[in-house]
Nucleic acid binder design. Structure first.
Lengths: 150, 150
DNA sequence: TTGAATTTAATGTATATACATGCAAATTTG
DNA sequence: CAAATTTGCATGTATATACATTAAATTCAA
């Protein structure tokens, strides 16, 4: 794979900023493609996995749809529909919130927790393998990404 | 925005590799959201813009659909359908390849080139603004991303 | 306290991704 | 050369993103 210029056959970029944006879009696709292969056998999408992780982080405390939305990796995603998909698979429960009937309390089920436990190990191991950096470099990358977003 | 831990309200990560993957997914969403706002008024998606750029890079030499596909940022995208969309907007022309009737020659039109010229300036300027790094840091980020993919 | 504004979730529509499949043309092979 | 394989593209289906709109519940203000 190597340099981005070879990977997408583009000779040069306007400046390092524009190159970084393209490089990030391309690297994102690389990561997501690898992750998809992992999720596929479990009939779960990366986004659904992400929602399950957020719910487990609550330790049993019900979470509203908007709260899930705020914590998702993709802010423009649609937590409402993802929760619906997870409910159909019985990985989450959805109940009307007693104190505010507009809201919906979402909780991960035992079945959801079990699936998460299996998947998480694979994802964590997969991520370590797919990121071909030293520990120090990975830390540098995290700092740069945090700074990039301002 | 700042640190990824605050941005998505996750206290800690398994290791810097797993943190980097999440950080990259999140940063990708940040970039794409900003880019979408730019493309929206021109009724063009980022992916369609990418195809137009690839075609212009050919300097008038017809390009096959599979060649476009190979050079796209998202390898799993569907160049065939994107070309169809662009054709409906008269931004590209599509002709049967004379030497191999399986293939389809795609060329950007004058209208496509004009739109690209306008958009490109805005995208380039937008990218410089949205990446809040020094030149040196942007170069570092590019090196790390290239290395990450191995 | 009632009416306006806001909040929360669901839904509608267009676009794109992910992957399988179909089909015709071209190439390989026996 | 005929049959089998491969290639190039289109298309079908499910999922997700992006964004507008709707409907109901709640809050706020006159």
């Amino acid at each position: 794979m190597g340099k981005i210029e070879e990977a997408i056959q583009q000779k040069e970029f306007k400046d390092p900023y524009n190159k970084a944006v393209v490089n990030l879009l391309f690297t994102h696709s690389y990561l997501v493609t690898a992750q998809n292969a992992l999720f596929k056998p479990h009939d779960l999408s990366p986004e659904q996995y992400n929602v399950l992780r957020i719910l487990r982080g609550q330790n049993g405390v019900p979470t509203t749809v908007s709260s899930i939305q705020e914590r998702m990796l993709n802010k423009m995603s649609n937590a409402s529909r993802l929760v619906e998909k997870l409910k159909m698979k019985e990985l989450v429960k959805r109940e009307e919130c007693p104190t505010d009937r507009r809201q919906v309390d979402v909780v991960i089920t035992e079945k959801g927790l079990e699936l998460l436990q299996i998947l998480e190990k694979q994802v964590e191991e997969g991520n370590r393998e797919i990121v071909r950096l030293t520990l120090e470099e990975a830390n540098q990358l995290n700092d740069l990404l945090d700074k990039l977003r301002g």
